[in-house]
Structures are given as C-alpha cells and as structure tokens.
C-alpha cells in the first residue's frame, strides 16, 4: 500500500489537425501522492495542458492508464466514473475566459454541486458563502458577474468552484501566469493555505520555474510531449540533470541586476516540428552537449539519483558527470 493518489502510466494523445497528426503527449508516466504539489514544467505547446485535461477527464487519452485511489479510470463505464470525477477538479490559466460571463458568481461556484446533484438550494447557498469567504471574496458579492472582478478576484472564483466538492486533486493550469506579481503572491499563498487545511494535492502546471520552486514538492520537466526529467524538490534544484532542465533554469530572468543578459549563455537552434516523425533525442537541435548517439536513439528516462530520473544519454555514463558539469 502506498500513499499514491493518482498514477499515470504510458499516456499518449494524438490530435488530428489540418496540418496532420500531432502527438501532444507520449509515454508520460507519473504518480502524485496525497496532499503534495506535483509540478509540470516546460515550454508552450509541450503538452502540459493536455496532460492536465486528461487527468481532469476533459480530454480522452489514446492510450495509457490513469489510476485514482486504486481505481483504473480508463476501465470504468461513465456511470462508475461519475463519483470519482468529483475528486479531480481544475483551475485554468485565464480567469477572463474560463468563467461564464452571463452567470453570477454564485451560479459559477455552485455549479459543480448542481452537476453532481448535491444539496438543496439553501445548503448550496451556505456552501457558496463559506467557500467565498474561504478564498477571500466577500460573500455579498455572490450576485455579481465575473466582469465586475479583477483578474486576481476571478482566479479566486475559479478556486472556490474547484474546491467546493472537496476534491482530492486539483489540476492548476498556469493559475498565476496572467496575474501581476503582487496578485500572484496573493493567489500562491491562498493555494498553499488551502492545501495545508484541506490536504488537497495539486498538479501544478507552469512555465515559470521560480513559481515552481516555491510551490512544488516534485517536479517533472516536459519537452515535446515527453517527460525528460522527474525528481523530488531537493534533488531537482541541487542537481538539475537534463540539459533542457538546465537551459530552462538558466534562461529564467533573474531579478539580480548584477546578472546581465550579455553574460548569459543563450539556447540557440529551433525546435523540431511536432508533426514530423522524429528520430533520436528531441532536444538535440538545441542541446549544447549533443553527440552522435543522440541523432539515432531516443534516450529513455533513467535514474540519475534516488527517485530522480532523466532522459539523456549522458546520464549514468561514467565520464558524463564531468562532461555535463563543465558545460
């Protein structure tokens, strides 16, 4: 028996688009423990949101299994799925477009209760007021409409709606990317407070490694649909191993005015097209350490430290440590 809440194995999702088949997610496996924050990092289009939507049952995967609390969701009928779905909720990046503009705040927040047939009108009212208070909104504002609220307040509405069913897992897809830093701090603090009180686990999707550093217990870095590194917080920050993870960390704008851009290495080269069949390591067109094998063989995730995995041919090579450290 483990304390794994959600286990994903070999997830794959291919979209058909006018330009051809696009594999958005491939061979993704991960497990999230109860009450922890698991971060998915990576650049836009790498498949983070697709993984999030699959976990929240908003997108159907083409292959792979998702086990929630020991139940294999991919094997259940829609009816059997219904009660389990309550346990996973989602918060979206853009508070401006993710809320129905014609619904009142009350209606937005209570909607999951209605969908799942929970409580009568009075009970729902009470529950909404309680949630609004909990996320820092004045309950008197329940009859107003989303456009009357600022970005940060709208994000609070989204959080209240996601938490009203008391889920075990909330998928937070770039929850603070559209917000100013001052408001970002308010929302991150709120998410942490709620987690501490309610024991909710988060799948925390973000392209911002500074935010991830503050929030996440475990980090997975995604690149063109695949995980290239997964590690617990301490090990990841002490030894980021995949060259792509290192590049992302180095590229992060750092508010120290003595670290000037002129002096920093810049990742050159273009990403391969997600539409084309690819061979070898997907990162090699931009990787400063690429060598012959990288063009031929796709590196699998391999352990580089306890509980720490990276998909790079240089991992585990006896000389690679010096090799990568010198880069």
């Amino acid at each position: 028996m483990t304390d794994d809440l959600l286990v994903i194995r070999d997830l794959r999702k291919t979209f058909s688009t006018p330009s051809g088949a696009l594999t958005a997610v491939s061979q993704v496996s991960l497990s999230i423990k109860r009450g922890e924050t698991y971060a998915l990092a990576g650049e836009s289009g790498c498949g983070k949101s697709t993984v999030g939507k699959i976990v929240a049952a908003l997108v159907k995967p083409d292959a792979g299994s998702i086990t929630l609390d020991g139940n294999d969701l991919t094997a259940l009928s829609p009816r059997q799925l219904r009660p389990l779905r309550r346990k996973v909720q989602m918060i979206f990046q853009d508070p401006f477009s993710s809320l129905n503009p014609r619904a009142t705040v009350r209606r937005i927040i209570e909607e999951p209760l209605i969908v799942h047939g929970l409580g009568n009108r009075g009970e729902r009212r009470r529950k909404v007021a309680e949630m609004m208070d909990r996320v820092g909104l004045r309950p008197e504002a329940a009859d107003r409409f989303p456009h009357e609220f600022s970005g940060g307040q709208r994000q609070r509405i989204g959080i209240a709606r996601a938490l009203i069913l008391n889920p075990d897992l909330v998928v937070c897809d770039e929850p603070v990317s559209a917000l100013d830093v001052s408001v970002q701090a308010q929302i991150l603090n709120l998410l942490k407070d709620l987690q501490r009180e309610l024991g909710t686990a988060y799948l925390f999707i973000s392209h911002d490694l500074s935010v991830i550093r503050h929030m996440a217990d475990r980090i997975a870095v995604m690149h063109l649909g695949q995980l290239v590194e997964t590690a617990p917080r301490a090990s990841f920050w002490a030894n980021p191993t995949h060259p792509y993870s290192r590049a992302l960390i180095a590229a992060r704008p750092d508010p120290n005015p003595r670290n000037r851009l002129q002096d920093k290495p810049v990742l050159e080269g273009e990403l391969p097209s997600p539409f084309e069949k690819r061979k070898g390591c997907d990162f090699r067109s931009r990787c400063p350490l690429a060598f012959g094998l990288c063009a031929e063989v796709d590196p699998p995730l391999r352990p580089s430290a306890p509980d720490h995995y990276a998909a790079c041919h240089l991992v585990d090579e006896p000389d690679s440590r010096n090799h990568t450290a010198a880069a």
């Binding site: 650049e43 590229a251 992060r252 810049v266």
Partner: peptide, 9 residues
C-alpha cells in the same frame, strides 16, 4: 517561452 524570450532580448 523563456528560451525564446532570451534570444529576442
């Protein structure tokens, strides 16, 4: 993205 941002800046 940060890597592209860095190139442009």
């Amino acid at each position: 993205d940060v890597t592209i941002q860095q190139q442009i800046l």
